[in-house]
Design a binder for these strands. Structure first.
Lengths: 294, 294
DNA sequence: TATATTCATTAAATGCATTTTAATGATAAG
DNA sequence: CTTATCATTAAAATGCATTTAATGAATATA
């Protein structure tokens, strides 16, 4: 009984698709097929119902799924157990989102440094999905990312919620106020690229109302974005703490919408499968989370 | 994190020796060494204290050991889960001990047949350790074995206790009674070969008193053994139910000793790692145990 | 009905990881 | 001091999982 097979099965049930599961585990469909077959073979039961279109587990498969979850949980507990007794040391490569300013990031980083003075922390910043990609490629040990709530992460990663952050819709001072999301399209949006995750959420919310997201300008930094918004080029969507610390804070108008609750979640994300090379850094999952929560 | 590594570690901690662990998992010492190293590497902690002579886990290792147990337990639970919902079918190769007569074996076998009429059962008999060897070589699907209590089984096997069985020390009618184990050596023993497991226990008990087991004759079957005992060639050690059903039952004297409590345990033993070939039979661990318990 | 398109399975080839074999080291017992 | 026992290490061999590539099945589109 291989754990890899188990996590493959879990990923498939979650995503209801071999392809997406493969994607999330960074493998081929073939590999997933084999893994599922392995598990089915060793258990002697059919786990997936091949006839339904969204691939679903058989009744037995569902029970197995639950138990698999329990197994993976105990394995995680083992990691935690070790991590909690091992004071982290060495160099720790942490990724932080472009979209969050120093004002937001400094407190947790300071807290991290207080907890583990021996730890060398190297911080680099990037857009959300960039950071996730670097995690799966083991170029980072952990990353903080800001994503819409209920966001699904790659199965190769563990995500711990660090807290919620309010997003604000901002407009220039002279923009006439409006109350519904649908009206936003009259002005258009100025947004950072897809990688940051907000855009996805906004797009989906608009799609629910049958409208496509209209983007006036793609920006690559919060100050730039806010500057353009201040000039009346369109609306912006920005984390409240970033707005508060921006030079444009007073120049902008915050719009409160009735049908769009712009809440994002700040996550700490780190790889599940500890490569053999990076020694200590990845080990302290929730330990790190605790240290980062001020 | 590989389950094989985990069970290797568990085996090592249990046996306090790499060699014995290797033995019980049917592997080389080398392999065990590597597996332990793997686990230590992925966890980033030293698990075994190499300096103590009976190889012992470090304090951290002990905690890890407990958690490993939990993991393996959940994995077993998965097997159980599936097994309990899968009515067994096909041909089931069950091994039973030479040392137990039909009188003892018939009730559980009948019970098994009642529970699972669809199951073809092929029963073959052998000495205890023979049966265990056949299990690890997948020549049997399960075996009932009679062994001294607290007997350690190979880690590749799961053992479920089915109940206790009284052993009797028997002698010919004209043997003068005695009360202590040590006195038995005056008469010598007539025993079945080592494989049956009783001999081990007896030998150990005598060794504790500083005496070596003196065996007058090696026998290869209970009736033969009892026949020879009846002729006064020495003492016998035999399960009570077998004695009760023997033709020599009335010809023999049962000796009650004060310092040797001859209790054996009847086990159901089956392989943990289900080979891919044998389809259904090995699957129903405790399910089988329930059926076999009358 | 034909033709893509999407998604899963299968088969052969590659590549990686684990195991064994064999040699070395280390420690305790005779 | 020698032998025996047990663990580690290195190199070769084995085995297993993944990928690549081709096939199959089912749905949608023209």
């Amino acid at each position: 009984m291989k754990n890899d097979d188990i996590s493959a099965f879990v990923a498939v049930v979650r995503r209801q698709s071999l392809i997406q599961a493969a994607d999330s585990l960074q493998l081929t469909q073939s590999a997933i097929t084999r893994r599922i077959q392995n598990l089915e073979e060793t258990l002697g039961v059919e786990l997936l119902d091949r006839h339904t279109k969204p691939l679903k587990p058989t009744p037995m498969g569902l029970k197995v799924f639950d138990q698999c979850l329990r197994i993976l949980q105990e394995i995680d507990a083992l990691r935690e157990l070790v991590a909690n007794d091992t004071p982290p040391q060495g160099t720790f490569r942490l990724g932080v989102p472009h979209s969050l300013s120093e004002a937001v990031l400094l407190p947790p980083l300071r807290s991290l440094n207080q907890h583990y003075p021996a730890l060398q922390t190297r911080v680099s910043s990037g857009w959300g999905t960039e950071l996730l990609a670097k995690l799966v490629q083991a170029e980072l040990d952990a990353a903080m990312v800001l994503f819409p709530r209920n966001r699904a992460f790659p199965d190769a990663l563990t995500a711990v919620p660090l807290g919620e952050i309010q997003l604000c819709v901002v407009a220039s001072q002279d923009t006439p106020p409006f109350q519904h999301l649908i009206d936003s399209q009259q002005h258009g949006w100025i947004l950072n690229p897809d990688g940051c995750g907000f855009r996805d959420g906004l797009m989906r919310a608009l799609a629910d109302q049958g409208v496509n997201l209209q983007v006036n300008l793609d920006t690559y930094g919060s100050e730039l974005q806010l500057g353009l918004v201040a000039e009346g080029k369109g609306l912006g969507l920005i984390p409240a703490p970033v707005l508060a610390n921006s030079q444009y804070c007073d120049t902008l108008q915050v719009i409160t919408l009735k049908d769009f609750s712009p809440l994002a979640e700040l996550w700490l994300v780190y790889p599940k499968h500890l490569g053999k090379l990076q020694k200590p850094a990845h080990l302290f999952g929730t330990q790190l989370a605790r240290a980062l929560t001020p």
